[in-house]
């Protein structure tokens, strides 16, 4: 995201992904541009996945957050450049981990983990590497389901998308 007025950034920061409430949409990397037009701000957002059902909610939440500050915002959906997990900020990745979702790993580890190789993803509960994939698809399209073989914890892993 290009630099914008601190107040505007704060407003955007207050909006989070409805499915991952600890993750701000700014840290998720889906805000691509903020345009200040005559009587409103135009927020350009890019979807994580084409069918992500959270996008409509996020759009409403952005408009509402601006409205609460007495400002008007409109949202424009853009597809290019396509979102990748590299766009999640370091702060965002940390928030994911603390929330219990393993953050996306680099492409080679991701590939090994998703093809069923064990011990690739760190358990978000106890930190053990003794984990295995249970399902390539987890609670949402962007996540896969893993389980820790030490503490038994099932947890989501945010799949790498490039």
């Amino acid at each position: 995201m290009e630099t914008v007025d601190q107040h505007i950034e704060d407003i955007l920061y207050s909006v989070s992904d409805p499915e991952i409430p600890v993750l701000s949409i700014v840290d998720m990397g889906i805000i691509k541009k903020v345009e200040k037009l005559d009587d409103h701000f135009l927020i350009h957002i890019t979807p994580t996945y084409s069918g992500c059902p959270a996008m409509d909610t996020i759009e409403d939440d952005i408009v509402k957050a601006f409205d609460e500050e007495g400002l008007k915002a409109k949202v424009k959906h853009i597809l290019s450049p396509a979102w990748t997990t590299d766009m999640i900020t370091e702060k965002g990745k940390k928030a994911l981990e603390e929330y219990g979702i393993a953050a996306p790993r680099d492409a080679s580890i991701d590939k090994a983990a998703l093809s069923g190789e064990k011990n690739q993803i760190k358990c978000t509960n106890c930190g053990s590497m003794n984990t295995k994939m249970v399902s390539r698809f987890g609670s949402t399209a962007c996540k896969a389901l893993f389980q820790c073989e030490d503490c038994g914890e099932p947890f989501d892993y945010f799949k790498c998308l490039r």
Binding site: G51, S135, F137
Partner: peptide, 14 residues
């Protein structure tokens, strides 16, 4: 079940 419906969701998004 989840995988197939997630694939469905991707397709509808497209």
């Amino acid at each position: 079940d989840i995988a197939l419906t997630n694939i469905s969701l991707d397709l509808f998004g497209q």
